[in-house]
Amino acid sequence: MGLGPAAQLVAVGVDGGEEAMPAARAAALLARERGWDLMLVHSLQDAPGVRAGAAAGRPSRPQESGEAVLDRVLAALPPDPTTRVHRVVSGASAVDALRAVSGYVSLLVLGQGDDGGGDQLVTGRVGSAVAAAARCPVLVVRRGTAPVDLGGRPVLVALDEETSPEASLRCAFDEAVHRGATVVVLHPPLDGDGGDDGDGDEDAGRRFADALAVVRRERPAVRVRTEEVDGEPDGRRTDGPLLASLVVVGRPHPGLHVASWSREVAGRVLAASACPLLVAPSDDPPAEVSGGGRRGARERRR
């Protein structure tokens, strides 16, 4: 298609169902606002947003049907003659098709039902399999999600000890530049009182601080503040309401338990804000980890 690596292009997985339309509309709006191309990706095997394997044993739909799906999606989007549209109808599974696309676009958008939260992104859906290996940020837009621009609300990024802080921060700062928003960095308590291994908290604090310093030097115009948040699922200790225009989390290592601190917090923020979730690609090498939570991280470092 003549597209180079990390082209200024936003791709969206569509299946023609209602669940995919909020994602398609969000992708089209982002493409128009940023002057990017828009790519619609449709799999003939299974549809983005349904459980992986749901289409097993079902005959593949004909190519004409895939083109008709893209026609219907485009017809439902607001007319925009300024945005160049690319169409992809793939014979591969939705997971394989979207993972391949993630290698040469700037942003991949996926839809999800309105029953999903921070943890449910990484359970068994096509979105979880795509986000686990995507080479670009993955934006998850749930049905019922508010518009992309939420009246100047900040971009929130939840950092924990399990994922790369620098990758998540870069994604959050990049989105803040596009949106003209403040970045709020949420992190667990780092005072050494979270368990019997205070050194783990100090190490995490240094990693967060070092990563934040690097990204702030790269994007000095972005306003940023940090906020300590109680890591318990029902905790409410913050300096202000957890409302956001976007929530950014890092991609967990393979085998990491889904109920990590960042996803607990992300689920709470998403429930309060009705905003999209962005999963940052990992810049860490694969690691053999299992279990979850801050205590698990400390035990693995011993």
Rank of each mutant, 00 (worst) to 15 (best):
R99K: 12
G198W: 10
G118P: 12
V184C: 08
R87H: 07
G195E: 02
G124D: 14
V184F: 01
G192Y: 03
L121Q: 10
R170W: 12
G195I: 05
V177W: 01
V215G: 07
L98W: 05
D115M: 02
P137S: 11
G180P: 07
D196M: 01
G113D: 14
P79N: 00
V183P: 11
D160V: 09
D197H: 11
V89Y: 07
L186F: 10
A204E: 13
G205N: 03
P137R: 12
A100C: 02
G194V: 13
S168E: 02
V215I: 13
V122Q: 12
V126L: 04
G103R: 15
V148G: 06
T123R: 14
V85D: 03
L159W: 04
G200T: 09
L159E: 08
S164L: 00
A132H: 06
D80Q: 12
T83P: 01
D174G: 15
G111N: 11
T182Q: 14
V89R: 04
R170Y: 11
L159G: 05
V140F: 14
Q112N: 02
D197I: 01
E175A: 15
G144N: 06
A100E: 14
G117P: 10
L186E: 13
R135M: 08
A167T: 11
P79D: 12
R153E: 13
V138Q: 04
D196G: 14
Q112I: 08
G117W: 09
G117M: 06
E162Q: 08
P188F: 07
V184I: 15
V109I: 11
P189K: 12
V148I: 13
P78L: 05
A132F: 03
D96I: 00
V85N: 07
P154S: 00
G124S: 12
Q112P: 00
V109P: 05
A213K: 10
G117F: 06
L169A: 07
P147H: 03
V184Y: 06
A181C: 11
S90N: 04
V95G: 10
Y104K: 08
P188K: 05
D160M: 11
G113F: 01
R143E: 15
L156A: 13
G91P: 09
V214A: 14
F173T: 04
A133E: 13
G152A: 03
R135D: 00
A181Q: 05
D114V: 00
L110V: 11
R125K: 01
R142N: 03
T123N: 06
R87T: 09
S102G: 01
A213N: 05
A213Y: 00
